[in-house]
Amino acid sequence: MTFDVTKHHLVPKHTKLSESEKSKMLGKYGVEALSLPKIMTDDPALKKLDVKTGDIIKIERKSKTAGASEYYRVVVEG
C-alpha cells in the first residue's frame, strides 16, 4: 500500500491543460513553454495524470493573500 499524496491536504490540485488551454495560457503570458517554472515527470503529484514532457500542469493553490491562486508548470524530464 502506498500513500496517495494527492489526497493530502497540503498538496494542491494538479491538472493537465489541454492543447487549446495550453496555447491560450502561453498566449496570455506571451512566453515559450520553457520560460515557465518546471515540474519533473516523476513528481509524485503527477502520478495519476499521464503526463509527457512539454505538457503544462495547472496548480490551484490556497493562498493566504488571494484566497486561491493559479500556478503553471511545464513538465520536464526527471
Partner: peptide, 14 residues
C-alpha cells in the same frame, strides 16, 4: 531572462 517566477505578484497582485 524573462522566465516566470510568479504568475501574479504575491498571488493577489497587490
Amino acid at each position: 531572462s524573462g522566465r516566470i517566477v510568479q504568475f501574479m505578484y504575491g498571488e493577489d497582485g497587490l
